[in-house]
Amino acid sequence: MSSKFSNAEESPGFMLWQVTNVWQKAMRKALDPYELTHPQFVLLFSCKWLNEKNDHTGITQIQLAQHAQMDVNVTSQVLRTLEKKGYIERRSHPTDSRANVITVTKTGDEIASQAVQAVEEEDRAFFSDLGNEIGHLNRILKQLAHR
């Protein structure tokens, strides 16, 4: 046998992959009415959230990518799509000629606010079987995410 695991359920990586696929399917279902992909939602809502935390002064693409832990090039592609949809605006950074300031439009704010409700509802349903163990799962996921 080429694996140290006697069955697939013993492999944490394989189980994470399976859970991720099932969860992503649930997210697609929740986001379909808003015509958003999950990466689009993550960046749109993160942009809204970060701008609110920064008194609506705008954030840079790098700040957004770091917050979402997403590749900068992928972030740029997704932001281009969100801009075409009229959900975000990009303008030149006042002090850094290499950067853009990203803000959420009124339409983008409304879509993000509606979509987050659907996503959080789907999350609650998806993780409901964990009961009080959800906090433990979050601590483990946070530990893995911040490597």
Results as ranks from 00 to 15, higher is better:
21 N>W: 06
54 N>V: 00
29 K>A: 14
44 L>N: 00
61 Q>W: 09
38 H>T: 14
30 A>S: 02
46 S>E: 10
36 L>C: 03
44 L>T: 07
28 R>M: 04
52 E>K: 01
42 V>I: 15
55 D>P: 00
28 R>E: 13
25 K>D: 13
55 D>W: 13
53 K>P: 05
45 F>L: 05
61 Q>G: 10
61 Q>L: 11
28 R>A: 12
24 Q>E: 15
34 Y>F: 15
43 L>C: 03
54 N>T: 03
25 K>I: 02
47 C>K: 02
27 M>A: 07
56 H>W: 02
40 Q>F: 02
36 L>M: 03
50 L>P: 02
58 G>N: 06
46 S>Q: 10
39 P>M: 03
31 L>C: 06
47 C>I: 01
50 L>H: 03
26 A>I: 03
37 T>N: 00
55 D>H: 13
60 T>P: 08
45 F>K: 08
51 N>M: 06
22 V>W: 06
48 K>F: 15
38 H>I: 10
55 D>S: 12
53 K>E: 14
56 H>E: 07
51 N>K: 00
52 E>F: 01
35 E>M: 09
33 P>E: 04
27 M>V: 06
34 Y>Q: 00
42 V>E: 12
47 C>P: 05
46 S>D: 02
36 L>E: 09
52 E>P: 07
56 H>Y: 12
47 C>H: 01
40 Q>I: 02
52 E>T: 01
36 L>Y: 08
44 L>V: 03
32 D>R: 15
45 F>R: 11
